[in-house]
Design a binder for these strands. Structure first.
Lengths: 184, 184
DNA sequence: TCCTTGATGTCAGTGACTGTCATCGACAGT
DNA sequence: ACTGTCGATGACAGTCACTGACATCAAGGA
């Protein structure tokens, strides 16, 4: 038996989501989260660089899925279709966790400072997608535009999935992609 | 003659830009800015809700220009073209101030926390554009997609204007819009 | 047995904000 | 000129997000 209970990081994320849902993000201090998780505030900040980050712990996985799907696409597919395939892959990581995603989205929607962080993560996805497209030979400008479009598809699909009780996130992404094509 | 020198807000924005350029955003305290502007820290926070906001004082004007251009567009123009006309209008507010915009962009590029704030402002522009498109009868989904595309055009045009010494922001926007159409 | 390592606790400190109250020039009404 | 209100500011204390430095202690290896 170790000196401390294992799984501290996981306890902190759970405690944070609970407390944010109960009192809201701003009315929850880092000390509150740490206390509920059975650690000190200092330990909280050793695991998370700031208080917001505790809500964005899985984002890097989506970025990876996005990038790998782009890298894996056949060479003769058009950049916009490659990028959208990446968005679909990222969406695939969420399909099982709809309830959790909805709770998280509700907390973020109520808190401007968390919206900022979410936008930064989406910008990170955009940059990652842009880089992946470039590596397969897409021109810089085209890559950036296609990546932005794909992230837009992801965002709009996610919003509809949560807000309108749509059953399947991937289907929402297809719809959004179709809508995008329909604009031109 | 009044009790305090007038133009306190303007002095604070100037002082902030100077100090951020000299030492960087994080190494500048709100008290530093206030001191150089000849006021107290408390007064700084009466004018700006937070330290970052001092760099984003003119953003609302761009949002208005964006919205009004959308509202003023003829009824028979396609939504994506209306939205891009909005982006062009917003860009028009910057054409005269290239130097200032470049300084600001450099500060922001060095500071993640300022990037977050900028992304939030861009998201505000997207929402405003979406609302304006809806008001002229565009379907919700179409409006959101077109607004996202227009803001993307704005972003990419701005980046090229600053980074690649392009002479004219509006011309950059035309190029970006053409590139976007070329994706489909 | 001793030493190292890794995760944690403890504590003091900085800086971004916020609430509250006092101050004081300007301006209007008398 | 007298007076009262108003708006912008100063002064000050307080909370909370973070950070650096050092101490502690279980586990595992030499």
């Amino acid at each position: 038996m170790s000196r401390w209970e294992p799984g501290a990081r996981d306890r902190m994320t759970r405690a944070a989501v609970e407390l944010f849902a109960e009192r809201g993000f701003e009315r929850t201090t880092a000390g509150d989260i740490a206390e509920r998780a059975g650690v000190t505030e200092r330990t909280f900040f050793r695991h998370f660089p700031d208080k917001r980050e505790v809500l964005f712990d899985g984002e890097q996985a989506m970025e990876h899925a996005f990038q790998e799907a782009i890298a894996a696409a056949p060479a003769d597919v058009a950049p916009i279709d490659v990028a959208i395939a990446g968005a679909r892959a990222a969406a695939g990581l969420l399909t099982d966790r709809r309830e959790q995603a909805a709770r998280r989205a509700q907390i973020i929607a109520r808190t401007p400072s968390l919206q900022e962080r979410e936008l930064l993560k989406l910008a990170g996805m955009t940059r990652a997608a842009t880089d992946s497209l470039r590596e397969r030979g897409t021109a810089d400008d085209t890559a950036a535009l296609a990546a932005h479009c794909a992230v837009t598809v992801f965002q709009i699909a996610f919003a509809r999935w949560i807000d309108e009780d749509a059953p399947d996130l991937i289907a929402c992404a297809e719809e959004a992609a179709a809508g995008l094509r329909g604009l031109f």
